[in-house]
Design a protein around this nucleic acid. Sequence first.
DNA 1: CAGGATTGTTAGGTCTATCTAACAATCTTG
DNA 2: CAAGATTGTTAGATAGACCTAACAATCCTG
Lengths: 237, 237
Amino acid sequence: MDALSHSAQDYLEAILVLSLERGQARVKEVAEFLGVKKPSVVAAVKGLMSKGLVKHEHYGYLELTPRGLAMARDIYHRHQTIYRFLHRILGVEATTAERDACQIEHYISSKTLARLVKFVEFVESFPDSEEDPKWLHYFKRYAERGEPPPCALDKCPRGGEKVKSLSELKVGETGVIKRVKGEEVLKKRLLTMGAIPGTQVRVEKVAPLGDPMEISLKGFHLSLRREEAQNIEVEVE
Amino acid sequence: MDALSHSAQDYLEAILVLSLERGQARVKEVAEFLGVKKPSVVAAVKGLMSKGLVKHEHYGYLELTPRGLAMARDIYHRHQTIYRFLHRILGVEATTAERDACQIEHYISSKTLARLVKFVEFVESFPDSEEDPKWLHYFKRYAERGEPPPCALDKCPRGGEKVKSLSELKVGETGVIKRVKGEEVLKKRLLTMGAIPGTQVRVEKVAPLGDPMEISLKGFHLSLRREEAQNIEVEVE
DNA sequence: CAGGATTGTTAGGTCTATCTAACAATCTTG
DNA sequence: CAAGATTGTTAGATAGACCTAACAATCCTG
C-alpha cells in the first residue's frame, strides 16, 4: 500500500487525539481541530477508508481501525517526541511547540527521529538532582539572559591569548584572520567572501544584538551574521 | 509583497548555494540540485523574477538580486542552524541531516528557530576543555551504546525506594501505580487507558528493546511504548 | 410534531507544484 | 561551417489539498 500523504497523516492523528479526549470523533470536530472545512474532512476520510484505516458510517462517527490506530499512534509518538524536545528542552512556549511539532513531524526522517527520541530520553532520564540536568538549566539561563555557564567563567578555553572570534571584537578593533572554523559548506562560503587566514579585518559596525556585523576586509565591506563571525578566529592587533 | 512559498524558498536557496560553490547558477544545475525537471525551474524562476528576487536573461545564468540575496541568506542561515543541530549535536549522519534540514527549515517558526540558534550557540561556544561539552559527550555515548552518564551511576535520583518507572519492571513483576508524569496530553491519554494511581499492574511481555510493553491492568491488556511506561511510577510488590 | 438549526455530503471549482512532449537556442566537434 | 548534442523554453497536463455552493440528514425546541 502507498505511504500516507502528510495531509492524510494529519487527519489520522486528529481522529486519534479527539477519540482519546472525547471518546469519539466527528467530521465537524476534525474540521475545527485541523482548521479546514467539513467537505475537506469528508474527502480525506474517504481516502483513509479506502486504505482500511478508518471506519465511518454515513452521517456517523469516525473510528480508527486497528491498523489505523497503530499508524496514528506512530504519528502521534513522533509528534510527542518533537513537542517534548521543543517545549521541555528548548523551552519553546507550548502553543508554538505544538504547532511546530505538527508541521515538522512529517519531514523528519526515521533516523533523525530515533536520535531525537534518544536525546529526549537522555535529558529526561538523567536529571541530576533537579528536574533538569545542570547543563540544560545553564542553557535556559543562557537563552533567556545571555549568561554563560559557570565553566566558561572559571576556565576559558582560549585563556590569555590575544586570539578571539571575530564576533568578540568591538567597533574599531582590527585583527588578522588566523583560522576559519565550522562546517565545510560554511567555511567554503566564508572563504569565498574573502575570509582567508592572514587577511586583516576591521570591525566597522555592530548591530544592537551583535547581528549582523559590518566588517571591512581587503577594502571590501562584508555583512556577517554573528554565527559566521564566531567561526572566524582573529589575532587582535 | 506576499511571503514566499516553501518551494520558492528552496529555489532561492539552491541558487545561492550554487552561486557560492560554482560562481554561477544555471537552470540545469538548479534542477539537479533540487531533483526536479528543468521546466519546473524555469516556472519557479519566473515567479521569483516577478518578485524582484532573481535576474535571469533569456537562456542565461540565474542571478540573485540584492533583495534575493538577503532573503536567500536568511533561508540558508535557518538551514545551517538546523543542520548543525542535527549533525553536530544530535549526531545524525551528514547526508540525512542535510536532507532533513532542507525540509524542516520551512516549518519551524521564528520563535523556535531563535531558540534553536541559542541552543547551537550554547553548545558550540562553551565546549569545556574538549570540542563537545561533557554532557553532549555523555549523550553521544548514551545514544550509541546506551551507557548512562556518570552522574546517574553515583547518584540515583530515586535511590533506595521501591518506586520505579513501569519501564524498569521485568516480565512477571507487579506493582501499584503511584504517579503518572509527563505532559497533560500524554497523562490524559494514559489515564483514559486506565493508568490511575492505586491500580495494580503486571508486566506480561516486553519486546526486545523494551518497546512496546504488554501490561495487564484491571483485567485488561495494554500495549505501551517505552516512553509511555517511563511516565508511570509504580511501587514494586 | 413541525420547523428551524446544525451537521454531513456531493459536485464542481481553484491554486500550487510538479510533469511530459515538443520545439528553440546555444555549444561542440568532426 | 554544418550537424549533432546539450541546455533552455513553452504549452498543456496531472495530482494533491483545499474551497464554495447547494442540498440531505439529523437533532432540538417551542
